[in-house]
Simulated scan of single mutants.
Amino acid sequence: MTAYALLDLVPVVQGGTVSQALANAADLARHAEQFGFSRYWVAEHHGMEGIASAATAVVIAHVGAATSTIRVGAGGIMLPNHSPLQVAEQFGTLDALFPGRIDLGLGRAPGSDQRVAHAIRRSLESDSNAFPQDVLELQSYFADDGKTGIVATPGAGAHVKLWILGSSLFGAQLAAMLGLPYAFASHFAPGLMDEAADTYRRGFRPSAVLDKPHLMLGFNVFAADSDEEAEYLATSQQQAFVAIRTGRGIKLPPPVRGYRERLGAQGEAMLGQVLSASAIGSPETVSRQLAAFIERTGADELMLTSAMFDHDARKKSLTIAAEAMRGL
């Protein structure tokens, strides 16, 4: 059976608060644990009023304390924003708190725009280019192999599972070279998915942590009792995508009936492309679309994600998705 995981951006809904979003995250993680999800990840984003996971390690600790068995982690930490030593200390601390449950996905984007990246006081171009070396430095701290001359405390000897993230061929090549699992962001940038998957699989070199490629693909799921209801619930995420693509992040809005029909040809084409790795519909429809995606891509694991305005509707959607995955 293909494993299935959950990516939660910890959405702040219109009229809601960050406190509510964080409470929902813990509740959603408990729900995912109950329904067989392999892992629960949050992602580092900055300067976005609709996403409450900027302090990613803190949110992971919050979720880890609310759960008992599910793996929890970052999908991901944007390494150009941090020193590898600080990341080793943070995730070494998480591993000490939740032994054997911590994942650390690493990305080379800033998780923000140029203005916010400057506020973080990191040089975007130089740090992105230094990403492979930073990954190796981080591995050295966890391995406590003495190469850096510094012992990360906490961090040295921590059993943190590293992943490389990406939406281009760069991450695929690096993950293959280092023999690490690879997660591709097909849930919002599916354009290079097939090429990246092929690049990763063909170039993979076995390592001490992984003897064969492990590919996880992002996939949106919006499930409900009927196709019509699912299409309606999905419009919250669609509105948020359109807002981001037009340069303005927003809090997650309530769903709107007939939203896509009113977008026009250009907006409809944009959504069709960005959400092409998606299942929207009834349990039968979602099961069929998940099966087709897995058959086409051969993914080892799916990172399911969706943002819905109504928390209970989102939990129900994930229940339907989990049942569909188990049925496959």
Rank of each mutant, 00 (worst) to 15 (best):
N129L: 14
G75Q: 14
P80R: 05
V58W: 04
E137W: 01
A88I: 08
D103M: 11
S128H: 09
G100Q: 06
H82P: 00
F98Y: 15
A57R: 06
V135Y: 13
G73F: 00
A143V: 04
V72I: 15
K161S: 13
V160K: 04
L138H: 05
Q114L: 11
E137P: 00
A96N: 11
F142E: 09
F98M: 13
A156W: 02
A88E: 08
K161R: 15
L104E: 08
H82F: 15
Q133S: 09
A152C: 07
Y40H: 12
Q34T: 14
R121W: 02
F37M: 07
E137M: 00
T153M: 09
S53C: 04
R39L: 07
L97W: 09
A119I: 00
Y141V: 11
A43K: 04
V63C: 01
G64F: 08
S128G: 13
G36D: 05
F35A: 03
H31Q: 06
F131T: 02
T153A: 12
G64N: 12
H82G: 06
A74S: 14
G155S: 02
S128E: 11
A130G: 02
G64L: 00
S38M: 05
T69G: 12
D127H: 14
G107K: 10
G73W: 00
P99W: 00
S83Y: 04
F98S: 13
A117Q: 03
P99I: 01
V59F: 07
Q34M: 11
F35T: 01
V63H: 09
A96V: 08
V87A: 03
A65S: 14
E125Q: 13
Q90Y: 10
I70D: 12
L162M: 10
F35G: 08
R108C: 12
Y141D: 07
W41K: 02
L104S: 05
G107W: 09
S123Y: 03
